Amino acid sequence: MCGRYASTKAPTDLAEEFTAVDAVSEKAGEERRPDYNVAPTRDVIAVVQRHPRDAEGNADPDTTERSLRLVRWGLVPFWAKDPSAGARMINARSETAAEKPAFRKALAARRCLLPADGWYEWQRRAATKDHKASKQPYFTHYADGGSLAMAGLWEFWRPKEGELLEKYPDGLVTATVLTTGAVGPLAQVHDRMPLVLPRDAWDAWLDPDTDAKADSVQAWLRPPSEELVASLEIVPVSDRVNSVKNNSADLLTPLDPAQVEEPIQLDLLG
């Protein structure tokens, strides 16, 4: 699964990297701070592609626009009574998303990318006579420093009446990260991983007119290639990342292997 990740690049830089319009800076009106410990229910940057609308709200069917948007991490289905459901839907399994009521419509027409520097995962270690049960956090990222494009789904939710309507008069745009089976050395840390899409998948994935059943979309709903995995680096990091209160650059600093009990076989990568 993916329950924590880092997103530290400025929207202007992400807009250039993903060939998108920076609607995040335009809306926020201020510089967005780096987030080294992105946690569920926070606002995160998503890359979406939609048909632009005119002043009357009519969509132009002949063109699409790719842009960066702020969404809340944790998908709230359109039929949910309140937004609390989102905290339980930060991830969606790529193998079954098309069958789940909460995700199937979003998979069909509201796919997105969630840019990340990398994601955190915890390797569980059983208790032994010499050591207590523990969890060692690892950070996985592209070795060349490029942004990961995690496949996601987004949804719009708006309350119908009452206090929630007063609290969310414009509704909420929320998103979930698709996950898949971990590949190669990644499986030594956890059996699941975010569905990371290579650059040549972005256009088909984001195209709102491409149905989820199309081969061009189905081809990417599976574990990443060995080539992509070989371009990743997995490093053990401090357990300070365990607390969402900690949010600084040192969370990404690799630990000395001597500090890690039974480290994974990093030499298997690449």
Score class of each variant (00 low, 15 high):
residue 2 C to Y: 03
residue 3 G to I: 00
residue 7 S to L: 12
residue 15 A to S: 12
residue 22 D to P: 06
residue 22 D to N: 12
residue 23 A to H: 14
residue 25 S to D: 07
residue 25 S to N: 13
residue 27 K to L: 15
residue 28 A to L: 14
residue 37 N to G: 12
residue 38 V to W: 03
residue 40 P to E: 08
residue 40 P to R: 02
residue 44 V to Q: 03
residue 45 I to R: 07
residue 45 I to Y: 02
residue 48 V to M: 02
residue 49 Q to H: 01
residue 53 R to L: 09
residue 59 A to F: 04
residue 60 D to H: 05
residue 60 D to L: 06
residue 61 P to Y: 08
residue 62 D to W: 06
residue 65 E to S: 12
residue 66 R to L: 06
residue 69 R to H: 14
residue 73 W to S: 01
residue 76 V to F: 00
residue 79 W to R: 09
residue 79 W to C: 09
residue 89 M to R: 13
residue 89 M to V: 07
residue 91 N to K: 11
residue 97 A to M: 14
residue 99 E to M: 14
residue 103 F to P: 04
residue 104 R to I: 11
residue 107 L to W: 14
residue 107 L to N: 15
residue 107 L to R: 15
residue 109 A to L: 03
residue 111 R to Q: 10
residue 117 D to P: 00
residue 117 D to N: 04
residue 117 D to R: 00
residue 119 W to R: 01
residue 120 Y to V: 00
residue 120 Y to I: 01
residue 122 W to D: 00
residue 124 R to V: 02
residue 127 A to F: 07
residue 130 D to E: 15
residue 133 A to L: 10
residue 136 Q to C: 03
residue 139 F to E: 09
residue 143 A to E: 12
residue 145 G to M: 06
residue 148 L to H: 06
residue 154 W to V: 08
residue 158 R to A: 14
residue 159 P to I: 02
residue 161 E to Y: 11
residue 164 L to Q: 13
residue 166 E to R: 15
residue 166 E to Y: 02
residue 176 T to S: 13
residue 181 G to I: 06
residue 183 V to M: 04
residue 191 D to P: 07
residue 199 R to V: 13
residue 201 A to M: 12
residue 204 A to T: 10
residue 207 D to L: 05
residue 209 D to Y: 00
residue 212 A to C: 00
residue 214 A to S: 15
residue 215 D to W: 07
residue 220 W to E: 05
residue 223 P to G: 08
residue 227 E to G: 05
residue 234 I to G: 01
residue 236 P to A: 07
residue 239 D to N: 14
residue 241 V to M: 03
residue 242 N to R: 12
residue 244 V to L: 08
residue 248 S to P: 01
residue 249 A to R: 10
residue 252 L to M: 13
residue 256 D to M: 01
residue 261 E to N: 11
residue 264 I to C: 05
residue 270 G to N: 10
